[in-house]
Design a protein around this nucleic acid. Structure first.
Lengths: 242, 242
DNA sequence: CGCGGCCTTGAAGTGATTCAACTTGGGTGG
DNA sequence: CCACCCAAGTTGAATCACTTCAAGGCCGCG
């Protein structure tokens, strides 16, 4: 099990530095470090006693499903994101979380979250902060789905992921990054049909907005995508990591 | 100014009972009690130093706007809801909040929120809980906009509001309640055009799913609307009130 | 009386969905 | 080792839900 004192994520510089004391507290709170394969269900809708997790590496997504099977992806999760805060607060999660790639996650038993509030107010504040930030992401996604046209939606998705990955050091030379999403995932996140997603993406590629090969996406001109999508970026100041 | 010890909202029975001590703490934290007219901007996008509020009476909505003017309503706010938690956590709000009716709100200076975390862990937990609950509402709205057809969206909106108002004691005999929304608000919340919203609502009325007169909406059969919309209700256990 | 906000309705246009078929590539089992 | 299979991507065609444009009605208010 990886100790929080040796957390590779912290060393990316994307996160707010913490006192040694705080890190040790988080380390004590951490119960396990799990590795799960792609497709694993990290949070199951309706399941009781869900734990809180921090995504350490890999991608995941949070989704809701209607009784008749229609699915909406609410949010993509990247390293450093909390998983299951809502579920840990209320009794039962109304959503699910599934790993998109092989992931590794830190397990923070929900009961200890309560202790955190009692003894480490600054860390408790950070948890709330992360929850608020996640809500901002959902806000932006709702705006995308509600008010942007198909091409703008895809542009907004690509730019949003690009910016988040940039902060994590996961974008390489020439603005390219690994994108482990199928077109079905993209369609489900953007409220589009699979076919229309495919055709719209093909058009954006033809127009040179992005290119794709071998699971990697390249954005030759992120600014062009950004203005196409009218994307509203979150401030990228340092954020806490629990 | 209304003292928290005499809070009429608490007496509705919709909220988690608190110790006298906690109520006095909140009362001390409260800086003012404002009355604002319909249309007032409670949170202005991009404004610095926004405070945290609790909506005491009336309706409001939270929204985002694209640079070109398209608007998405993210969430409707009803009495007891926190206003501006996200804004209070990060520096600058990425969204706005506007009063739909005349409202009265309790002002909780953001600096004192930090004290709350230091001295009143249980209340701090409640704040986080309320933030998580709000995110659940946005999740549901995203699912509505992304994956439901127009008639389903309207049904989901009506049922969602109905259930929330029911808990607050704001639904009267025969399942009717005041709905201070124009069709433009509904269109902006559901990601539809005004014209299509109008036609779809007319159809639902013709089919007897709801009726409207004098600013009041009546749901003769909430269950029918609920199954039309496949609405995913939040648990309606007691929630905290700060 | 006239104006503006809100609701309503018809008609035309289009962006997105649905249906259907075919390609490609990696993985598996005979 | 090849045949087959299945998941994922692609493409064309028909249809439909929703948007846009346009016009008119109702009502409260200055």
């Amino acid at each position: 099990m990886i100790r929080c004192t040796e957390c590779a994520l912290r060393r990316t510089g994307a996160f707010k530095p913490l006192d040694e004391e705080d890190i040790l507290y988080i380390d004590a709170m951490k119960r396990a470090h799990l590795a799960l394969p792609a497709g694993a269900e990290i949070i199951v809708p309706g399941a009781e006693n869900t734990e809180l997790y921090t995504l350490y590496s890999g991608w995941a997504y949070r989704y809701k499903e209607l009784p008749d099977g229609r699915r909406q992806i609410l949010h993509f999760l990247l390293p450093g994101d909390l998983i299951g805060l809502q579920a840990a607060m209320s009794e039962v999660p109304l959503y699910g979380v599934i790993a998109l790639t092989p992931v590794s996650i830190c397990v923070l038993p929900r009961k200890r979250i309560w202790n955190l509030f009692g003894t480490m107010p600054e860390l408790a504040f950070d948890v709330t902060w992360l929850g608020a930030r996640e809500e901002s992401h959902v806000d932006e996604n709702l705006t995308t789905v509600g008010r942007r046209a198909a091409a703008e939606r895809i542009a907004a998705l690509l730019v949003g992921l690009y910016r988040r990955l940039l902060g994590l050091g996961l974008v390489s030379e020439g603005n390219s990054f690994a994108l482990p999403l199928t077109q079905q995932h993209i369609a489900d996140a953007l409220g589009l049909s699979l076919v229309h997603t495919n055709k719209t993406m093909a058009r954006l590629r033809r127009l040179g907005f992005y290119s794709q090969s071998d699971g990697m996406v390249t954005l030759p001109n992120p600014h062009a995508l950004e203005s196409l999508s009218q994307f509203d970026a979150l401030d990228d100041r340092l954020r806490p990591l629990i």
